[in-house]
Deep mutational scan, measured.
Amino acid sequence: MASDGVVVEIGKVTGSVGTTVEIPVYFRGVPSKGIANCDFVFRYDPNVLEIIGIDPGDIIVDPNPTKSFDTAIYPDRKIIVFLFAEDSGTGAYAITKDGVFAKIRATVKSSAPGYITFDEVGGFADNDLVEQKVSFIDGGVNVGNATPTKGATPTNTATPTK
């Protein structure tokens, strides 16, 4: 695992066909100046998982989280898009600690492993708008004895992609 920078880890949970599971997305290594904004994309298989919603985690402190935390689910493109932009203008609602960034709610549709993997990152910046190093650890849903650990090695991303 990367020793510096922010680590975004997609949790690994267990479920069975027809059940709804909650998959946490963790941030670790949050910089001392916090995270003022970030955007990134995960990939998944809508034939295996139906993403039914995404909720902000406990490290989102904006009293009205829909102003700073936004997501979009595109089953036709097989992606989930995340956007966080601190909304106070003063840094008061920045992410300042490690913990759960988001909770992905999904219904298991198939007995195949439900991988959720890193696809791309736009950027991560602290309260001074300084770009942060970030790496990703894939996860998803274990169905029966299947284990979604494909790509469990962190993917280092030093520069934003478009």
Rank of each mutant, 00 (worst) to 15 (best):
P63F: 14
T147F: 09
L49V: 04
V61Y: 09
S32V: 08
G5L: 10
V81T: 00
D70K: 01
A72N: 00
R28I: 08
K97P: 12
E50T: 07
Y74E: 00
Y44A: 11
P75Q: 05
V48I: 05
G89Y: 03
T149E: 11
L129C: 02
D4K: 04
S135A: 10
G29C: 02
E50P: 07
G123C: 01
F40V: 02
G29F: 15
G139Y: 13
R105G: 11
I116A: 05
V17M: 15
P46C: 08
Y44H: 05
V108F: 11
V41M: 01
T153S: 11
K12R: 08
L49F: 15
Y93R: 15
G29V: 14
V6L: 08
V108M: 14
V61H: 13
D39H: 00
G11T: 08
I116N: 15
V25H: 07
P160N: 13
T147I: 12
V8D: 15
I60D: 07
K103Q: 10
A92I: 13
D55K: 08
F84Q: 03
I54G: 02
A146M: 13
I10V: 10
Y74V: 00
V17K: 11
D126F: 00
N142E: 09
D55Q: 06
D55N: 13
T71D: 09
R105W: 05
E50M: 05
G123A: 10
G53S: 06
I52C: 07
V141S: 14
R105P: 11
P31A: 04
V134T: 13
L129G: 01
A158K: 07
R77F: 11
F27G: 10
K67S: 10
G5Q: 15
K133L: 06
K150P: 12
S3F: 13
R77S: 04
D119E: 03
I23R: 05
D119R: 02
L49S: 02
Y74L: 01
V134R: 03
F124L: 02
E120N: 03
D70W: 15
A102Y: 15
G114S: 06
T71S: 05
G57D: 06
P160K: 15
Y44F: 05
A36Q: 01
I51F: 08
T157M: 09
G11Y: 04
I80N: 09
K109R: 12
T71V: 02
D128A: 06
C38K: 01
T107N: 06
I104S: 04
S88R: 07
K97N: 05
R77L: 02
P65M: 07
R77G: 06
V108P: 09
A112P: 07
I54R: 12
K67H: 15
C38G: 14
C38F: 01
D98S: 09
S16F: 11
K97F: 12
P65H: 15
G29M: 03
A92N: 11
L129W: 15
P113D: 12
S68R: 14
Y26V: 04
R43W: 02
A94N: 02
F27A: 06
I116Y: 06
A94P: 02
G99M: 05
N64V: 05
P148V: 04
I10H: 09
G29N: 08
G123M: 00
Y74N: 00
N47G: 13
A152D: 09
G114N: 06
A125R: 00
V7T: 08
K33V: 03
A125T: 02
I10A: 04
G91N: 02
F69L: 01
E9P: 12
F136S: 11
K67M: 14
G34V: 08
V25W: 06
D45T: 11
G123S: 01
T96F: 10
I35W: 01
G11I: 05
F101K: 04
S3Q: 14
S135P: 04
T90Q: 12
K97Y: 14
T155W: 12
E131K: 01
S110F: 07
V81S: 00
E120L: 01
G5Y: 10
T14K: 12
P31L: 03
T71W: 02
A146Q: 10
Y44I: 13
S135C: 08
R105L: 13
A112K: 08
T20V: 09
V25Y: 14
G91C: 04
K97V: 11
G34H: 04
G144S: 12
D76F: 02
G114H: 09
G5D: 14
T20C: 11
S32R: 09
I10Q: 04
T161W: 14
S111L: 10
V143N: 05
E131Q: 10
V130Y: 11
T90V: 15
V141P: 13
A112C: 12
P63N: 15
F118S: 07
F101P: 07
T117P: 04
N47P: 08
A85Q: 01
G15K: 13
G123T: 01
G53V: 05
D4H: 04
A85L: 13
P56L: 11
I104A: 08
D119Y: 14
A106W: 07
Q132W: 02
F40A: 03
R43A: 09
I35M: 05
D126Y: 01
P154K: 12
T107H: 10
D128R: 10
T157L: 11
F27D: 11
V81H: 00
F101E: 03
F27P: 08
V108R: 11
P63E: 15
G151F: 13
T149W: 13
G91K: 15
D4L: 05
P148N: 03
A112R: 13
N37S: 12
T147M: 07
T161S: 10
I73Y: 04
V108A: 11
A102E: 04
S3K: 07
E22L: 05
D55V: 07
F136D: 10
I60L: 11
V100K: 13
G144I: 09
S16G: 08
K12G: 06
V108T: 11
K12P: 06
P24I: 05
V17F: 15
C38D: 07
I51W: 04
I104K: 01
N156A: 12
G5K: 11
S110Q: 09
Y115K: 06
P113I: 02
I79L: 03
T66N: 06
D58V: 09
D138M: 09
T96N: 04
T14N: 07
L129K: 00
G122T: 00
T117M: 13
S16D: 04
N127C: 02
P154C: 12
P31G: 14
G144H: 11
T147R: 10
V61C: 09
G140P: 13
F101S: 06
N37E: 01
D128Q: 06
D70T: 12
P75W: 07
G53F: 06
G5V: 06
V134Y: 02
T159K: 13
K109W: 06
G140S: 13
S135W: 03
I51H: 06
T66G: 08
A112T: 05
P56Q: 07
V141Y: 11
G144C: 15
P31H: 03
T14I: 05
P63Y: 13
T117V: 08
G114I: 05
E50S: 10
A158I: 10
K109Q: 07
V13R: 09
T19L: 10
K150G: 08
V130Q: 09
V41K: 00
E9M: 02
D55E: 12
T90C: 11
D76P: 06
I54H: 03
S135T: 08
N127L: 02
P154Y: 13
N142Q: 09
S3G: 15
G15D: 14
A2T: 08
P31I: 15
V81W: 01
I95F: 13
I54M: 03
K133C: 04
K12Q: 08
V13N: 07
A36I: 14
K12Y: 09
I80L: 04
A36E: 01
Y93V: 14
K12H: 10
G114W: 04
E86P: 01
G15M: 02
K133P: 05
T20E: 07
Q132F: 03
T149H: 13
S16I: 11
V13H: 03
G57W: 13
Q132H: 02
F82Q: 07
A102M: 13
Y115M: 03
A92Q: 14
G123L: 00
G91V: 03
Y74R: 00
R77Y: 15
E9T: 07
V21Y: 05
F69P: 12
G89N: 01
I137Q: 13
D128Y: 08
E131W: 01
Y115P: 08
E120P: 00
R43Y: 14
I116Q: 12
V48K: 02
R105S: 13
P148Y: 03
N127S: 02
I137R: 12
A125F: 00
